[in-house]
Design a binder for these strands. Sequence first.
DNA 1: CTGAAAGCGCTTACAG
DNA 2: CTGAAAGCGCTTACAG
Lengths: 347, 347
Amino acid sequence: MTGKRTREGSGRVKLEAVASAAKVSTATVSRVFNEPDKVSEAIRERVKEAARALNWIPNAAGRALASSRTHIAGAIIPTLDNEIFAHQIGGMQAVFSNAGFTLFLGCSNYDPLEGLRQAEAMLARGVEAIALVGENHPEELFAALKARDIPYVVTYSYSKLSEHPCIGFDNRAAFARITDHLLSLGHRRFAGIFQPVANNDRVAARLAGVREALAVADRQMPDENLLIGPSTLEFGAESFSRLMTREGEARPTAIVCGNDNIALGALMAANALGLKAPTGFSITGFDDLAISSRFTPRLTTMKVDNQAIGTLAASELLAVVAGHKTRPQSKEIVPVLQVRDSSGPLA
Amino acid sequence: MTGKRTREGSGRVKLEAVASAAKVSTATVSRVFNEPDKVSEAIRERVKEAARALNWIPNAAGRALASSRTHIAGAIIPTLDNEIFAHQIGGMQAVFSNAGFTLFLGCSNYDPLEGLRQAEAMLARGVEAIALVGENHPEELFAALKARDIPYVVTYSYSKLSEHPCIGFDNRAAFARITDHLLSLGHRRFAGIFQPVANNDRVAARLAGVREALAVADRQMPDENLLIGPSTLEFGAESFSRLMTREGEARPTAIVCGNDNIALGALMAANALGLKAPTGFSITGFDDLAISSRFTPRLTTMKVDNQAIGTLAASELLAVVAGHKTRPQSKEIVPVLQVRDSSGPLA
DNA sequence: CTGAAAGCGCTTACAG
DNA sequence: CTGAAAGCGCTTACAG
């Protein structure tokens, strides 16, 4: 009879119901929750009471549409299977949640296009800020972020030269450092066991760090001494066996592994072969996993505070969202070398 | 001059711009992307072209408000520090993403109230479905889910008796199973090293499983043989030392650990003390972490496909959201006993 | 400090 | 198959 259209609606309690229950306008209800100082205490209490009584949960879509704010942030990581990213997300999640932000999580599985796809889904849903692991993303993604003026940070890797705000550490410097450690122990024949370099700027930088440190010492790592494969205990183990069963000069004395997982695999193979580092050879890792310091032999590695990377990234992003700064500030986290039993003097 | 109000807006390209560029109504643009079959091909192409040219990304808030659909799902887990939950989330994320859903992640740190808080934030943001680890959540949470008719599943734990749809395994049965294994090996003096039971229905069920199996065999685990503490290698190690330095009858021969991490710690302590399972004692874990089958001695444990729990949970939730069923179907994942070197005949 | 009402960017019932 | 326009549930510029 009336010209009214019929619409489904959500069927939920809405702000309007709270307003009429508290006998105030919808504007006032909104203010009570968003700018409480602008409302007199008596009314404030009345409205809160009504909201509680009706069990009102604000509809974020309405809020987002009216205010162009969503209180959502996003993070894109390669995979949760690696505890370093899991810890990073854990730290991030806590800080965001504490600030009233809910976190979208996307995993690219090391496929930049998949990362792009997921980031776009997040943008469509109005994320106010986004964190990306590494710089290895399609230019398109960074362009979209800039076009919409969405603050972002690149995490895990850090470089002074980067055009992006980054929170992490210098992978190249870290591996130059660990190589120097082995060099200072007298090692001259180096081998490397690394995860794939494709789509992974962090691993590429690590290798560059090793090569750079060796070059300074007038050394180098022959191609046949660099084994690349999956970041698994197995690959570490089989690579170690392949390397150490070589004869004479072909056998390395220092094996730099791309991370602790690979190094632990190598150490297991060594134990199985009855070889005990640091006698005759040294092995190093990277990450300092919980188990690395308790394994026999204890693994020489570098410790990174991944959770701190996550909390710092979230804090910087929130500061920009809140308008405290215009751009997230880059922060360098310095990995700490942990010299333990798996590395020692050449002799 | 005009009575118009000034509003900020998002400043972004909107559907309206696409409509006028393609010389069609906004209704048609919307249909092109949501019900393409209802639009003639010529117009469809024209609109898509215009959208592409303008680089339009739909505003999800507008869409959500008008359609009451957000294409967002949520998951609440205790922590990402434990790889079992990380794997579960990894599986879930992939399935959701594939279906056009973006995933909210919340970590409760084993605090039910924190989990409730984060779940409420997700509800406010319109999640269409939610996955929760375990049943240990405030009744309020389940009530809110039911009131809003949001499909949910409880993951990781499984019980036929549960009033909730659950996808996981029977923790009680699994630990009864592992206890039976030790019993069948001739062990009679049992000890346990477990993580805290508070707010963790899974751990409570595990302990119940051990006790139940022992009771059937007319045995029991004395209070002083049950050590409870953090799920760390350290706690596993120190607990082992404490247990195994006891004299005579007070020293257990079978140690059931709450998970692999604790068991690995115990094994490390054993190695340090020069004790080698399964000579004189047996140790079991739970999870079958990557390292467990390669440690020396290889750990007897139970393997759970956590990723499958995640993918199944997401699939069930999506089926409900899509209207294919009214309620997620419970699914039991059966853990597989992996008998290895850390357990053996008593004598 | 408070309210009436326009507007955020979409979808969809209705009409043709 | 297509369009005009109401409506989704909030926020906020404006007026008082």
